[in-house]
Design a binder for these strands. Sequence first.
DNA 1: ATTCTTGCAAACTATTTGCAGAACA
DNA 2: TGTTCTGCAAATAGTTTGCAAGAAT
Lengths: 136, 136
Amino acid sequence: MAERTGTDVRRSTRQRTLVRDLVGELDSLRSAQEIHALLRERGESVGLSTVYRALQALAEDDEVDVVRNEQGEVLYRQCSVKHHHHLVCRSCGRAVELVGPTVERWADQAASEHGFSDVTHTVELFGLCPRCAGGD
Amino acid sequence: MAERTGTDVRRSTRQRTLVRDLVGELDSLRSAQEIHALLRERGESVGLSTVYRALQALAEDDEVDVVRNEQGEVLYRQCSVKHHHHLVCRSCGRAVELVGPTVERWADQAASEHGFSDVTHTVELFGLCPRCAGGD
DNA sequence: ATTCTTGCAAACTATTTGCAGAACA
DNA sequence: TGTTCTGCAAATAGTTTGCAAGAAT
């Protein structure tokens, strides 16, 4: 959890840029491994651990959001709004962002009702998107 | 995903009973490793993989529910109602069951709004329970 | 007797880390 | 030039699996 200070600055490198750009052009949640594989397919030479580190850095800087899928893998996706949830296609990985306040309100209420503090929530929906459901 | 048939029946064994009973007396979400450790502390001799297998069997039979914590570990807890969510204390592991329909409705609506089918949801709240927040 | 279960060790998956050499500011 | 970053190999953590021996029906 070490916060970064002003003295150790995030350097801009080829690998970091590749990862950021790739995540930027995808609209689905992907694992570090998938992102690494995609880069390799494009002929880019990047190490797997570098991809992990790059994604962690992006998450730390709040440039991507982080989700865990049903198998426990960590998935990343560029984020636009600060806090929201995803409706993820379990077949193609495409994700729709859900921004409504419904869940937040529900979570806050449940927390205060039971006297819990410092509450975070994990909310993700997994299903089949219309495209994948059709061509099954 | 192999369904069990009528010919291979679930046998009742010492180990299976130990795990089921322990889960029954706990009111908090625990990992397989924790359950294994608790049994060992009580002087029971059970293998770790047996605990994993026993918990999986219980989950398959819908006797416990399964949740993944923020670190990606799988947690188990005896379940009373069919579908619900948890407000879990990240310090002591105690869990409150939340049964309201709010989230289900929201999930269903979001799914149909975007044409997704066969949608499941993952909803968990993690926080500090009053007891742990007090004695910090 | 037959079939299911156990427990160990080894395998596996996703992820993290140490470290020497390479790259950025 | 000095610090940060990279990539490999090795380490970790949680979980799963093969298999021979043991227990339940």
